[in-house]
Design a protein around this nucleic acid. Structure first.
Length: 549
RNA sequence: UGACCAAUGGUGUAACGGUAGCACUACAGUUUUUGGUACUGUCUGUCUAGGUUCGAAUCCUGGUUGGUCAACCA
């Protein structure tokens, strides 16, 4: 008999369990993930996705995907497609796929109802006048001169707005709430604005489009959402969310706010990420340096590791900046279990085993994954001339260095124990060749091979190794908080010029486009994956994350 | 000079009036044919001042600090 300590609940789970206990929504838990299709999803969205879909799973409920497409000037189907792909890649499936635009008719009916009940009016004020009239947070606003138009006039003008009689920006529909409210969002919020823009789903049916506050809560309501989870900045919108549900007397989901994810050494603003793409600071939304889900995917992160990350960071209401180390830890933790081991030499120097017979070639057995007993083995060619990492040899080694040095021994993994005899340099002092002798009795598997050797290094046969492009990534920004800029600078001033280093290295010859695995570990180096830029002529690898050192 | 929200090691997150725990980071050590993994250990924390209470990270009040709000964005 043993006890498992229950994992602590986050505050949203506590709310849900309390609601379940009180039968607030029966036994139902229904969430939604409501992105605006105006950019690609990032790791912050991943947290929200895991939260919303995870909650639905945990409580046997459902989670909808709802694309919040109320602003046709910013939204595009490209983004819709990428959002759906990213969510599914993360491992989640929505119960239903909806669009805020599905509700435009219903929203319009409610708007007319509000007008008829003297709770909404058409305002002809200019944008500036409206802004001025709203006042400032510390001072109440003033009522619009158009606030007391009759129901009949309002209805007539609103219908003509819909019919397309008026120019963009000339009129808006506002709710009649409270111009003196300490909450700016309650000072007669705008419900509809005129936008003569084609919508990616409704085409030219509409020229008036609802604002977020008017559309979001009602969309939740229509879908029967029980818990509407959003980020902290919407906290001040909640009274308005509640006002619409109460005023319209419709199902009233509970809005709950949590702190969005922030990661150090990167940015999370969609607008800024878009800028990086448009100004070509990166190769695209899916550049492996981007914090986007597609970027992380291309970088070689597994969905498991991202889900685990989202679970590990927790859910709370306090502002936070997560150390990117935690993300990398989650990547290693999962990749260690699943990645196929391969030998790759990224900074090669030639090792010649002088007493190894010319022309002899042996096939050495190498295990594919020591963490996976079922992982099997493969064979790697061994010969007299090998590539090893330049960093694995040191001419004047201190006590801390226990790899190859003149007169020293080292094990070639899966092969022999060798002893370095001498090196050959060019005139500039660069090492050209490292010479060694091997002990034939120490081949892996032989009794002598069990001898204690200080270090084991990886290698590749010069004759058999295949050249490959390897892209080494580092942080995109040089400072922990690129958004927290000093006077006169922008986040662009902190871009790391060395965030991508492209090198040519050698990998095992059996690796090919036809024979791939999603995750590799280059022994002793790090985790890598094959990039989409690979051709049958040349493989391209992305470094996901290095091994801990 | 408003309203709302928050405050626990370096970073996150628990403790629901009764032993401040967990993860990451950092640093040590054991094991190891990856300087990986695994395992063990160490360092470091309740913003502040009062109050309530036998007892406060937790409840109350003031302060401080941080965040959000003044798009016809979401």
């Amino acid at each position: 008999m043993f006890f498992i300590k229950a994992k602590a609940m986050n505050f949203i789970e506590e709310i849900i369990e309390e609601d379940l206990k009180n039968g607030k929504n029966g036994t139902k838990v229904h969430t939604r993930f409501p992105p605006e299709p105006n950019g690609y999803l990032h790791i912050g969205h991943a947290k929200s996705i895991c939260l919303n879909f995870g909650l639905a799973q945990k409580y046997n409920g459902q989670c909808n995907l709802r694309l919040d497409d109320t602003n046709p000037t910013k939204e595009d189907v490209e983004y819709v497609d990428s959002i759906k792909e990213d969510i599914q890649w993360l491992g989640f499936q929505w119960a239903a796929e909806y669009y805020a635009s599905d509700y435009f008719d219903q929203l319009y009916q409610w708007a007319e109802w509000l007008i008829q009940n003297n709770l909404a009016y058409v305002d002809d004020s200019t944008q500036e006048e409206i802004s001025l009239g709203r006042g400032v947070p510390t001072k109440p606003g003033t009522e619009s001169p158009y606030r007391n138009r009759t129901v009949e006039v309002n209805l007539d003008i609103f219908r003509r707005m819909r019919a397309g009689e008026f120019a963009e920006g000339s009129k808006v529909l506002r709710a009649k709430v409270d111009m003196a409210s300490p909450n700016m969002h309650m000072r007669d919020p705008i419900l509809y604005r005129i936008l003569h823009a084609e919508h990616h789903r409704t085409g030219n049916k509409w020229c008036i489009y609802p604002m977020y506050d008017y559309a979001h809560g009602q969309s939740d309501s229509i879908e029967g959402i029980t818990h509407s989870i959003c980020t902290l900045e919407f906290e001040v919108h909640r009274p308005l969310y509640d006002w619409f549900c109460d005023t319209l007397k419709i199902h009233h989901p509970q809005q709950i706010e949590f702190a969005r994810l922030n990661l150090n050494y990167t940015i999370m603003s969609k607008r800024k990420l878009m800028l990086l793409v448009q100004e070509k600071y990166v190769m695209g939304w899916d550049d492996p340096r981007m914090p986007t889900i597609s970027g992380l995917r291309r970088r070689g992160y597994s969905p498991e590791s991202i889900r685990n990350f989202a679970e590990t960071v927790g859910v709370a209401k306090r502002e936070n900046i997560i150390d990117v180390n935690l993300l990398e830890f989650c990547a290693r933790e999962h990749l260690n279990k699943v990645a196929q081991r391969r030998m790759a030499v990224l900074d090669p120097v030639k090792l010649i085993i002088d007493n190894y017979p010319d022309g002899q070639v042996e096939l050495m057995n190498a295990v594919n994954n020591p963490e996976d007993p079922e992982g099997g083995t493969r064979q790697v060619h061994f010969a007299k001339e090998l590539w090893i990492e330049r960093a694995d040899f040191k001419e004047d080694a201190d006590k801390k260095f226990f790899r190859l040095t003149i007169g020293g021994e080292v094990r070639l993994k899966y092969a022999y124990i060798i002893k370095c005899t001498h090196i050959v340099k060019d005139d500039a002092g660069n090492i050209l060749e490292i010479h060694a002798t091997y002990d034939p009795e120490t081949k892996s598997g032989m009794e002598q091979s069990n001898r204690k050797v200080k270090a084991t290094i990886h290698w590749l046969s010069v004759e058999h190794a295949q050249q490959a492009e390897v892209r080494l990534f580092d942080k995109l920004f040089t400072v922990p908080e690129p958004d927290n800029t000093e006077e006169g600078k922008t986040f662009l001033d902190y871009i790391n010029p060395n965030s991508m280093v492209v090198i040519d290295g050698f990998v095992e010859e059996t690796m090919s486009l036809e024979n791939t695995h999603p995750y590799y570990q280059f022994e002793r180096t790090g985790y890598f994956c094959i990039d989409k830029d690979s051709t049958s002529q040349k493989l391209v690898f992305n470094k996901t994350v290095g091994l801990k050192s």
